[in-house]
Amino acid sequence: MHTARLRLTPIGPHLADELYRLHADPGIARWYGTWTRADAQARAAAIGRGWAAEGAGKWLAHHRESGELIGRGGLSYQDVDGARRLELGWAVREVHWGRGYATEIGRAGLEYAFETLGAGEVLSYTEVHNLRSRAVMERLGFTYRREIRRGGEPFAFYRLSARAW
């Protein structure tokens, strides 16, 4: 899949080394913790299984012209409020913050969710104090719903319906 500036490649085991490199970025590690190579291999394999079983998962995002690794993003199914729901997320290397890449990745994820998967809604959430991600959610048209707890921590929970898209 391509956007105006990015090439989006579904993550699978073959991209574990790049996923590891991405999560070594200080700006990403700040939100997701430090990953080992084994963590990246396990996550890449799990994401690949999600693509195969559910037709949804995360992509690695590379710049279309330079090939530089920009970030990752896309969809996954999460258990929220006792139901399995489609969630959109992204992570962009700190050097690229403020350039619209998260919004571009998010827009591609919404297009895929609504136009390819036929989703009725998409959810997104982030730590309450992650104002940059919250601003991306709002630019994409998500509406803040409430605070939820994930792993005991407060998260801002957003929703976007297919009708509003």
Rank of each mutant, 00 (worst) to 15 (best):
R43S: 13
D39A: 03
T103P: 03
E153F: 09
A53Q: 15
R84E: 13
A29K: 08
L88C: 06
G141Q: 02
V92E: 12
Y144P: 15
H62K: 09
R163H: 02
V128P: 02
Q41W: 11
I148C: 06
G27W: 04
V122P: 06
V80E: 13
R72W: 14
R146I: 08
P26Q: 13
G55E: 01
R30S: 08
H14R: 05
D39M: 01
E104Y: 11
L69E: 08
R7V: 14
L75N: 06
R146E: 15
E147W: 00
A61N: 07
S76V: 04
W90L: 00
W51K: 03
F142P: 02
R163K: 13
A113K: 07
D25H: 02
L86R: 12
P13C: 13
S161N: 05
I70F: 13
L140Q: 03
G33C: 01
T143E: 15
I148Q: 00
E65F: 07
R146H: 05
R84C: 04
P26G: 12
R163F: 02
V80N: 03
A44I: 07
G67M: 05
R149K: 14
S124C: 15
G98A: 06
I47Y: 02
A29D: 03
S76N: 11
H63W: 02
G152W: 13
D25V: 12
E104T: 01
R139S: 03
D81T: 08
L86D: 09
L8E: 09
Y144R: 11
I11C: 05
A53M: 10
L131H: 10
E121K: 03
